[in-house]
Design a protein around this nucleic acid. Structure first.
Lengths: 195, 195
DNA sequence: GACAATGTGTCACCTGGTGACATATTTAGC
DNA sequence: GCTAAATATGTCACCAGGTGACACATTGTC
């Protein structure tokens, strides 16, 4: 397919963005979210505070960059699911794709989960992002099933249920101190939520 | 039963709290949440900004006072449900109690729903509060069913599913401009979510 | 190489939120 | 009813997140 050649500007912007995220998460993990100021993130990188807020609308958004990033992938995944899967099944299977990311660098994932669970403010923002994902997935589901085969209400509930199961699984994982494997917990949660 | 005689102090505090909430919501409805400063709320009442933040940890909390307020009631309601109802049914029935509030002063309810839907920041905080409610209800459900009859994971998922249905119903209501009746939408949503 | 477009830094400023301390008010003991 | 402890409020100084405006620098285009 058409390989995009990212212009120099794009490359530099992506690099700066990554630097900010790396440094930000590093400091958040080390000192906590509330105890880390934007200035502390920005200063060692030689970047202006103002610039930070051109990349991220809010301090919290830095944490959820990866999350928002993956919603389009998830939507595509859902649309590509075999037609014979039930709506709920398809959504669950699509979501399960994300588990690979947890497998690849589990300690990073764990740190992130801890960060969220220990900072209610972040949780709030996280839910906000989840809402966007929920809506995107619901729209995709409607498209997949056909507009007159599933109501918006039903689509939202199916997607919402799957996401709740996911969330519950993550919490269970967190409660257990991350000792257990996430994948089977998620599987079980999906199964329970599916009745 | 024992009628509590609220001390003078308690009365005054309650009065101040109500004043703040009334004025706050009034201004939020009129000018929007972001466009209303705490000073604007506080000034016409002759109250210091500092005092505002003694009543509410954050500006957003003023909006959710009513919400947090009713969680204990909800928990009690759930515990009092007849034993022959299924867990999910019991949670739904308990939640449905809240519908009376929407019937009593529908325009106030409508304004509030609009406020939430039009301010993502508020949504975020709202989800945060919902999490607390979710946990409280899950705990109550476990207590109701017996600790060895239902796992925490399952309890959370059941409660979460019901709350998702509720949320989806509210959204549907909002999308429809509030023309339709909320109660039947919620009923339908509960039914769909129950499979 | 010149000009437009876009990104970055600097600065001033607003607003949410908090700690510290003084002052006023309620409560409780007598 | 007076006094002393307890608690609520006001004032003030200050921090940190976030934004608008403007100048400067860098990249893209012809």
């Amino acid at each position: 397919m058409t390989e995009k050649s990212p212009s120099l500007r794009e490359q530099q912007k992506a690099a700066t963005r990554n630097e900010l995220i790396r440094m930000g998460l590093l400091l958040f993990f080390e000192n906590g979210f509330a105890n880390t100021t934007v200035d502390q993130i920005v200063e060692p990188l030689g970047i202006a505070k103002r610039t930070f807020f051109r990349y991220f609308k809010a301090k919290e958004d830095l944490v959820f960059d990866f999350y928002e990033d993956k919603t389009p992938t998830l939507v595509r995944e859902l649309k590509n699911r075999p037609k014979d899967e039930s709506p709920y099944e398809a959504v669950c299977k699509a979501l399960s794709t994300q588990l690979d990311l947890y497998d690849v660098n589990p300690d990073w994932a764990w740190s992130l989960v801890c960060l969220l669970n220990e900072n209610p403010e972040l949780m709030g923002k996280g839910f906000e992002k989840r809402l966007t994902r929920e809506q995107a997935l619901a729209a995709a589901l409607i498209e997949r099933e056909g507009k007159n085969k599933i109501t918006p209400l039903k689509a939202r509930i199916i997607v919402g249920t799957a996401l709740i199961a996911w969330q519950a699984a993550l919490d269970e994982w967190y409660e257990g101190g991350g000792k257990s494997k996430l994948r089977p917990i998620v599987k079980k949660a999906f199964s329970i939520a599916g009745q």
